[in-house]
Design a protein around this nucleic acid. Sequence first.
DNA 1: GTCCATGGTCTTTTT
DNA 2: GACCATGGAC
Length: 672
Amino acid sequence: MKLNPAQDEAVRYIAGPCLVLAGAGSGKTRVITNKIAYLVRQCDYSARHIAAVTFTNKAAREMKERVAQTLGKREARGLMVSTFHTLGLEIIRREHKTLGLKAGFSLFDDQDQLALIKELTENELQGDKEKISRLLSTISNWKNDLVLPPRAARLATDPETVLFARCYERYQRHMKAYNALDFDDLILMPTLLLKTNAEARAYWQNKIRYLLVDEYQDTNTSQYELVKLIAGERARFTVVGDDDQSIYSWRGARPQNLVLLKEDYPSLKVIKLQQNYRSRGRILQCANILIANNPHVFEKQLFSEMEYEAPVRVLFAKSEEHEAERVVAEIMGHKFMNASRFGDYAILYRGNHQSRLLEKALMTNRIPYKISGGTSFFSRTEIKDIMAYLRLLVNPDDDNAFLRVVNTPRREIGPTTLEKLGTYANQRGKSLFAASFELGLEQTLTGRGLVAVRAFSDWLVRLGDEAARGNAVEAVRDMIKDIHYEEWLYESSPSPRAAEMRMQNVSTLFKWVSQMLEGSELEEAMTLPQVVTRLTLRDMMERGEDEDDGEQVQLMTLHASKGLEFPFVFMVGMEEGLLPHQSSIDEDNIEEERRLAYVGITRAQQALTFTLCRERRQYGETVRPEPSRFLLELPQQDLDWEHNRKPQSEGERMQKGQAGVASLRAMLNRKT
DNA sequence: GTCCATGGTCTTTTT
DNA sequence: GACCATGGAC
């Protein structure tokens, strides 16, 4: 297929900074992949000097594949396609000494983070969940705004923020002692480094000579800063974005970065892609009408030349179970009639928990499916255990990991022993591992406890050596054998069947680890520290192989669906409280929910079906939800309400919605 | 030190 | 209704 004039312009414009405003389905991935090919083939760029950055692993994966298709595997070799966080991780890995980190640093996921914060604030916050989560998000915001503890302390005015700043300082200090980073650090540290260190900046500017950023509207302050620093004076970059698809403001994304770009780079070339090639007319019409309720920074008019075709359907279900069964029945019937493949269907939902019943219904009907994202695999105990062991192998100072597995399987190291070890370590600012070797420890800890702890630490040293010296795959294998993990699983699981499944998961993890350690033709071999951090970033889910033959129904959250497209889409749970989510209603944050709905609608190519329940269980209670206001905002002539059950109660809600939009529009106008 | 029962909490979204 | 943290019994 040929590129249209706007797309072609976006591909060929390489003289300076370039912003592509790409509506949904306007072929932005095509533009990015073609541009990479153009840079390599026509402009003498080597693929290893080009980096493309996206936000989700799924999007990165997809783009990698598309580029490999366009360019061929050989020419695409060395091309960096990753998420922002993985890019940050790579920068940190190379510069870790300058940053004062030991090789093999740990990456804390949010659960590790939470555990640490809880412990550090025991005195002040006493486990107050609300406060703790406010503290976490405050720290995250500081980091996203490139604010370090000293400045946070200076900026703080009210008592709570003063307290939070103190906690932030303490948190950072402990992270350093553990030789650990959190997700936000993966952006913060590279940014600060490139800002202050000319040598590192020169290296990375030379390494990345052309930068492409997808989903630019999702960048936060530090990410945008990082883009500017990598692009440097030459400003050879292309960013692609769409303010209507900004759905990550809750994690600091600032769609205003689209506007800032024009201010920071007056020579910025702005190209709009407005022709939609994805969705049939009615679907696009629905999307356009819905999003027209939001204020806009850039005016954009999406049009399509595709046929108008069948209306968008709205199906009712008695209950959640019924909803899942109906969707599955619809898919089976439709597939039979259309000779399509299961992989052509996607079921999209607001929250991960909604996948449960859908999975169940799919399973009972023996329909293959694939769940993207979600944390299920990595939140399993057995996986967390093994991950903790791997982290310890690479970084024995990682106290979180140490505590998790020091007595799993049982090693007769109980709370009393750990308490003593902990106090001793704390007084000296050492990690538990480091403290366990000290002679002074013998003052407080004696007998069996001491012996057991030292035996554990010694074992760690031995294994860590083995892993570092040579055969990491063997070391990991030995580790799992040494700890008799399989036996432990049979001991600790409710049934042999469960133990078997858990062991299966451990094997899967081990398989991934060995694959990553050994590399493949598409992926370079990694070191064990790399593997462990990458695994924490969930950077390797769905790496090929698990026979993706297009015969699996796709299940994912609306967030995870961004950037993807499917012939037939089901959006389930179209109810007030779910979409828009209750918390967004409470916080008057409807616009982002509307964009979320917009993202979902615009995933569909040929057919779109909404479903909602008359009754839904919530905390064990049965509630009767209202249909989502978004259904009422859609052009009703394009909608087919099942049994003509279109609800009547529009007036009041519409009025409220309009008022909200108007005030925000006024706000935006003031800003621009 | 380990195991099981009870009760309280919870469901946004991702790296 | 499911999951986890806590506490009491052994």
